[in-house]
Design a protein around this nucleic acid. Structure first.
Length: 642
DNA sequence: TCACTGTAATTTTTT
DNA sequence: ATTACAGTGA
């Protein structure tokens, strides 16, 4: 790249951040102020004028989408694929470090990642064996508790328990058993990826020094979303040698619910001395009207760092407001409007608070034959049949994976019922062994009736056969073989016609995904392990989009970082947005920031929609329009009719 | 052991 | 409305 030519495309503030001397740089970047541009240009600047080597550069994002975007923009800028440069999500980078350093991290080489669903199942199993009242100790609550502790960097054993607090004591004891279980099964959950990586570096000084010397330039996107353990990890990595470059917007902090600490922004100044703050407040995205609406809305929040976005674009059409009678007419209005616009369809987005709202828009779009793409919702690798197949693969690769064992031991049905599995669980727990080994033992000791024993033996043989037969095969052939051997394919053929077809197609798609994965990644003996991790870390968002030019449907959370010519912000109703749960927890400000994110996605046209009534739990409920609508000055709004 | 039936709970967002 | 789960009979 011609650095100096590129610099001319930046404004003064952006240039200041990109060409800043080698200190810690904090960039307060408002929506649409070109933060990704600054980040990518900074990296290019380091490479071209500071003689940095690609392998000295680390760039961390929060979503896979953002990571991919950044990687491709860096490549475009450098006019070649950048090798050696690490760009990824916090979880992706932690995973990479753990794979390389599995031994000092005290992990088996084939360790696997549990997604939220796997984690919840593991917790349910533990609660069942402990025979606790599942009204008091709901799996969800336990899951939230454990993840919160891990996000704070706390192990069960690290915490001093006040014996008076029976609830807390019980929670920690569950946490402890959970930790032991995961240890035994060779699996780790999402939060553990971060915590384990933190401990790995903290407890291995030589290793830490190695990475500190390597990653001299650490970049973090969306810094306002970091949680405690992520912050601590950054502190370790940057050390005294490294230079930190963070980009953040406190008004777009929307992940407090999963442990993001907005206080981390304040800590920066103290923990990383010799720093420089650059403010990007010029917006290049939206019309002045849209920006004014956004500024006024977010002005209702207290304790902001404070900034005022401005733009050179004057005026723009008003923000349109549509009040529907029902959610169906809301969707109809949106779809009719979409037909009028003469833009590319991918320039149009329908945004909503909850995934459940997508269905009604999907139906309306389908009816009118408008191509659309839904982000989020049930992702490819989360589908039932895919999870089943992945469980077979996991079990073939690591027989101690109890979660995988339980999932497929009787799928498809092979006569191993609850009773038999209960016996295995009992033995496994008593002798602290995996279900697989317990099964072996139980068969040897003839603890089961002949019928159950035979069925179980057949299952164990099946898995071992699979293990033998996939040896030396290509990754996608391994998947293909196991679909056949496990007779999962057969199994799904039997279901309802249309649904069964879909499931079979998905299994076929999994084979394709494996083929693609093997093409992108260098072949190695651990490719199956890596593929399985990939399915957990990137739940397969890109699968199955048939058209390129589609109307974009997504939740407000997944819209962060994107922009569209036309935005429909839907379901603006009290209880839905702001969501009831947030109101109860007193988190209206985060909901408002979410609304701010939504509004600032729009370049030219913004439609706010709400419905007077909505189906919930099978009943029609009356809905009040959202307070957020009232917080936008009326002179910016124009009511429209269908 | 498994299919069937009735009842209770469920819906915030993502790695 | 849809789904998950527990209880019941074959």
């Amino acid at each position: 790249m011609d650095v100096f030519k590129e610099l001319n495309t930046l404004n003064e503030k952006q240039r200041e951040a990109v060409t800043a001397p080698l200190e810690h740089i904090f960039v307060l970047a408002g929506a649409g102020s070109g933060k990704t541009k600054v980040l990518t240009h900074r990296i290019a600047w380091l490479l071209e004028t500071e003689q940095a080597h690609p392998y000295q550069i680390l760039a961390v994002t929060f979503t896979n989408k953002a990571a991919n975007e950044m990687r491709s923009r860096i490549n475009t800028l450098l006019k070649q694929p950048s090798s050696g440069l690490w760009v990824g999500t916090f979880h992706g980078i932690a995973h990479r470090l753990l794979r390389i350093n599995w031994q000092p991290a005290n992990l088996p080489q084939t360790f696997q990642i549990l997604d939220s669903d796997d984690q919840l199942r593991a917790i349910k199993r533990i609660l069942k064996t402990l025979q606790l009242d599942d009204k008091v100790w709901t799996p969800k609550k336990v899951q939230i508790f454990i993840n919160a502790k891990k996000d704070q960097g706390l192990r069960a054993k690290d915490v001093v328990i006040n014996e008076d607090d029976a609830w807390l004591a019980q929670m920690f004891s569950i946490y402890q058993i959970y930790e032991e279980t995961l240890e035994r099964t060779g699996t780790i959950d999402f939060a553990e990826l971060l915590l384990r990586t933190y401990e790995l570096l903290r407890d291995n000084p030589a290793l830490l020094e190695h990475y500190q010397q390597r990653f001299l330039y650490v970049h973090v996107d969306e810094f306002q979303d970091t949680n405690t353990i992520q912050y601590q990890l950054l502190q370790l990595l940057v050390g005294t040698l490294g230079k930190l470059f963070v980009v953040f917007d406190d008004d777009q902090s929307i992940y407090a619910w999963r442990g993001a600490k907005i206080e981390n922004i304040q800590s920066l100044n103290h923990d990383f001395a010799n720093n420089r703050l650059v403010r990007l407040e010029q917006n290049y995205r939206s019309t002045n009207t849209i920006l004014k609406a956004a500024n006024k809305l977010i002005g209702h929040n207290q304790g902001r760092l404070g900034k005022n976005l401005w733009t050179k674009y004057s005026g723009g059409e008003p923000v349109f407001l549509y009040s529907a009678y029902t959610e169906t007419s809301e969707a109809q209005f949106v779809v009719n409007k979409i037909r009028v616009f003469n833009y590319e369809r991918k320039e149009i987005a329908i945004l909503y608070r909850t995934t459940a709202q997508s269905r009604i828009f999907e139906e309306a779009l389908l009816l009118q034959g408008i191509p659309y793409r839904i982000y989020g919702g049930l992702r490819f690798y989360e589908r039932l049949e895919i999870k089943d197949m992945l469980a077979y693969l996991r079990l073939v690769q690591n027989q101690n994976d109890d979660g995988a064992f339980e999932r497929v031991v009787n799928t498809p049905k092979r006569g191993i019922g609850e009773r038999t599995v209960a016996v295995l669980r009992g033995v496994a727990r008593q002798q602290r062994m995996s279900l697989w080994i317990a099964a072996r033992l139980v068969i040897e000791n003839r603890q089961l009736k002949a019928r159950a024993s035979n069925a179980l033996t057949a299952f164990l043989d099946l898995i071992e056969q699979c293990e033998k037969c996939v040896h030396g095969l290509q990754l996608h052939e391994q998947v293909e073989q196991i679909i056949i051997k496990s007779s999962l394919g057969e199994h799904y053929k039997k279901g309802g016609a249309a649904e069964a077809q879909k499931r079979l197609e998905n299994l076929e798609e999994l084979v394709n995904a494996a083929r693609q994965f093997a093409q992108i990644n260098p072949s190695s003996s651990t490719i199956l392990t890596e593929f399985l991790s990939h399915t957990a870390l990137e739940a397969g968002v890109g699968q199955g989009s048939q058209y390129d030019d589609c109307v974009q449907l997504m939740t407000l959370h997944s819209a962060k970082g994107l922009e569209f010519k036309v935005v429909f912000l839907c379901g603006l109703e009290e209880g839905l947005f702001p969501h009831k749960n947030s109101l109860e927890e007193g988190n209206v400000e985060e909901e408002r920031r979410l609304c701010y994110v939504g509004i600032t996605r729009a370049r030219q046209h913004l439609y706010l929609c709400h419905s007077e009534s909505r189906y919930r739990y099978g009943e029609r409920e009356l809905c009040k329009s959202s307070r957020f609508i009232d917080e936008i000055p009326v002179e910016l709004i124009e009511e429209v009719r269908a």
